[in-house]
Design a binder for these strands. Structure first.
Length: 681
RNA sequence: GGGAGUGUAGCUCAAUCGGUUAGAGCAGUGGACUCAUAAUCCAUUGGUUGGGGGUUCAAGUCCCUCCACUCCCA
């Protein structure tokens, strides 16, 4: 087998937050692949870095009253600590805020300029006069210019799905300061990606660079039309690198972030006497990027385009994975399923998560669901019950002695398991870890059956049969070691423990093909504990508590009330008592509630004001309430609202509720004792 | 709104180019064993492959349509 030269990266974590179990899907996936490649004898380096630039970092540092450099240094230490606790082993962990990165950015920039891909355009952008900074779309909220929905983000409306530019918003507010932004023009630099259209068509649609569904997605969504220019500069103030030939402008964070892969490589090369060009300009080198599906287009359009323009190697493959859900739902801070790596570590063993993710990761970009009960079952059953059990039930009979001097007759088990080496390797290679785990666990079952039939515990009682005991245990321990070699990319610590037990290093994939003979066996020690549901529950509880503490700290008071709601929908102008009494608010009882099938957001309600007085109301609360849960409850309604014809009928009032819409709708309820028809003063 | 996906047993997933009676693990049930961390072994229940229609000798797989969910839209 010829040795491959492989450069591997995971996406750069942003220096604005800690590593959580969602991030870990990617780093564990990548780390397994890298460890596998190294075990196969390939020359493989795993590179990563913190992504440190951009507005979010600048704003956060400002809020915390310290420099960006201090913030990112602290975050980088925390990231490195988290990764190391999960046995994620980078060959170099850099930072996009490094000299190497600045130099490489300049080099890319010159190539892209020379290729005639850069042009300047004046664009209008909202500017926060209080913070003294231009505002990215997500930092502006206001009223949708199309449908008039309040509190919508700067680029599209969550109510009517209209897309627009932040400058079109009515009553825009900065989410940073609450100030009304001004429109200012600024010169931005753009890369004319369309000039690379033909190349990108070719690169994305041919070869094996992308998973099939990703190639389809790009074809369907981007490559069918001319590619838009890519805005890669941001005016000061901005935390990043100033563009050398455009003073006052900085490279957009997504320009310098992927270059960070190369800057990290450069650091590694310098530290290890390696030639940088061998890794990024020699076509013999394979380059593999592992990323999540949310950043697909940066890595499959811009990045190959940049590399092509600057004359570097193109990625051999971009491996894209799905998102993590917990219990079938998005990770949720309030439910405690948004678990930080460090919180997990406080309660559970990282090896469990590594195995669980491996058992569920396939080569496609389906989302991965972390089901906590399943985690408990899988770890206890597969790792403890099946795998470690093989050693546990055989090693103690030969502890302190040696394995048999020649490999005993085992009915072909060892050979059969060794024959799986290529299949299992192929599954790892294509990132089908779940397939690999299934094959390995089937072998573990076979090993347990062998021990079951051979009954070393019975043989042990007969002094004449001590040789047989040694033979049976030699087989069992060799089968166990085979499994551990297969699993060592996933469970490096278990591999180390096995080395201690059997006193022979595990160094290469082909170790599965040669049984150990005559080597000493150490005294058996427990290799892995079982998981309990209590541990999992404790982790979730701590995660919840952390979230509550964080919210409370942010709000600065004991009620956890944050400023977001008020900032999102700022106070209206003053009104008089006369203005207020024009609105006749009444307590009403919902006497019927039904779905409006043709409407996405509406429920049809009949409100009783008592004494036979009713109002038919269409309320936009479908996503938040089920009709059957509403019937009978008291609400507050606007009883004198002018009736309005809608497609589905006439609406004769409004039900009072707060919230931003969608599922975030909270009906007002009167306290106990109120009766329908009472006026609200 | 546009695009890309997903939907298979109670749960998590397989099923090669369209090809035998749709398979595993876990959970469940019955039994065996008692070396092992209540681990292991044997047997076994469980399916209208989201709904409907079509193509075909043959459809989980291909086509149309509807439903539900996920992600993306620079």
């Amino acid at each position: 087998m010829t040795q491959r030269r492989i450069l591997v990266t995971s996406a750069l974590p942003y220096a604005n937050g800690h590593i959580h179990i969602g991030h870990l899907v990617e780093y564990i996936q990548t780390d397994i692949w890298v460890r596998f490649q190294k075990l196969r004898g390939n020359q493989c380096v795993y590179l990563c870095a913190d992504d440190t630039h951009g507005t979010a970092i600048m704003i956060r540092a400002r809020k915390e009253g310290r420099s960006e450099e201090a913030l990112i240094a602290e975050m980088r230490d925390a990231h490195i600590r988290d990764f190391s606790e999960f046995d994620i082993e980078f060959d170099n962990y850099g930072s996009t805020n490094s000299d190497e990165n600045r130099e490489l950015c300049a080099q890319f920039w010159k190539s892209i300029r020379d290729a005639g891909l850069v042009k300047e355009k004046e664009i209008e952008q909202l500017f926060d006069p209080e913070e003294g900074t231009f505002l990215a779309d997500r930092f502006v909220r206001g009223t949708c210019p199309k449908c008039g929905a309040a509190d919508q983000p700067g680029d599209n409306c969550s109510k009517c799905a209209a897309t627009y530019s932040p400058a079109d918003l009515k009553d825009p507010k900065s989410t940073l300061s609450g100030a009304t932004p001004e429109i200012r023009t600024a010169t931005h630099l753009f890369i004319e990606l369309e000039q690379l259209h033909e190349f990108l068509d070719e690169w994305t649609q041919s070869g094996d660079h992308l998973q099939a569904e990703v190639a389809n997605y790009l074809k369907g969504h981007f490559l069918g039309d001319p590619l838009r220019d890519w805005d890669i500069s941001r005016p000061a103030p901005y935390f990043g690198f100033e563009i050398p030939d455009s003073p006052g402008n900085f490279w957009y964070v997504w320009f310098d972030a992927p270059i960070g892969y190369m800057a990290s490589t450069k650091q590694w090369c310098d530290a290890n006497g390696e030639d940088f060009d061998k890794w990024w300009r020699d076509e013999e080198t394979e380059i593999h990027h592992f990323i999540g599906k949310d950043i697909t287009y940066f890595h499959t359009l811009f990045w190959p385009g940049m590399l092509k323009s600057a004359g570097f190697n193109l990625p051999t493959k971009v491996h894209i994975h799905g998102f993590l859900t917990v219990g079938g739902e998005k990770m949720s801070k309030s439910q405690g399923t948004f678990v930080m790596a460090s919180t997990y570590r406080n309660h559970l063993n990282p090896a469990w998560l590594r195995y669980y993710y491996a058992a569920k990761l396939g080569s496609r970009l389906d989302d991965l669901d972390l089901n906590l009960e399943e985690l408990v079952a899988k770890v206890n059953s597969d790792l403890v019950g099946k795998l470690v059990n093989i050693a546990s039930r055989s090693a103690k009979f030969v502890g302190g002695q040696s394995l048999a001097d020649s490999y005993p007759e085992d009915g072909g088990l060892f050979e059969a398991a060794a024959a799986k080496a290529d299949d299992i390797a192929a599954a790892y290679e294509r990132c089908d870890y779940s397939g690999a785990m299934r094959e390995i666990m089937a072998l573990a079952d076979a090993a347990n059956r062998y021990v079951e039939e051979a009954q070393p515990w019975t043989l042990k009682k007969d002094p004449e049969k001590q040789g047989e005991v040694q033979a049976v245990c030699s087989v069992a321990l060799n089968l166990f070691r085979q499994l551990v070699v297969y699993l060592s990319p996933v469970l490096p610590r278990l591999a180390e423990q096995t080395v201690e037990l059997l006193n022979v290093p595990i160094e290469k994939w082909d170790d599965v093909k040669t049984p150990l003979i005559g080597t000493p066996v150490s005294k058996f020690q427990h290799m892995m504990k079982r998981v309990t549901e209590e541990q999992v529950t404790a982790m979730i509880e701590e995660s919840k508590a952390e979230n509550e503490a964080a919210e409370s700290e942010a709000a600065g008071d004991q009620w956890n009330d944050g400023p977001e709601a008020l900032a999102a929908e700022p106070m209206s102008e003053e009104c008089t008592i006369d203005d207020f009494v024009k609105v006749d608010l009444r307590v009403a009882r919902i006497v019927s509630a039904s779905d409006v099938p043709e409407a996405d957001k509406l429920l049809a309600l009949t409100l009783s004001l008592g004494g036979g007085e009713t109002r038919n109301v269409f309320a936009g609360i479908k996503a938040a309430y089920k009709p059957e849960d509403l019937i009978g409850r008291l609400v507050v309604c606007v009883a004198n609202l002018k009736p309005r014809k809608m497609r589905f009928g006439t609406s004769e009032g409004m039900v009072c509720a707060s919230g931003s819409g969608g599922e975030e709708v909270f009906l007002l309820s009167p306290d106990e004792g109120a009766v329908p028809g009472q006026r609200v003063h």
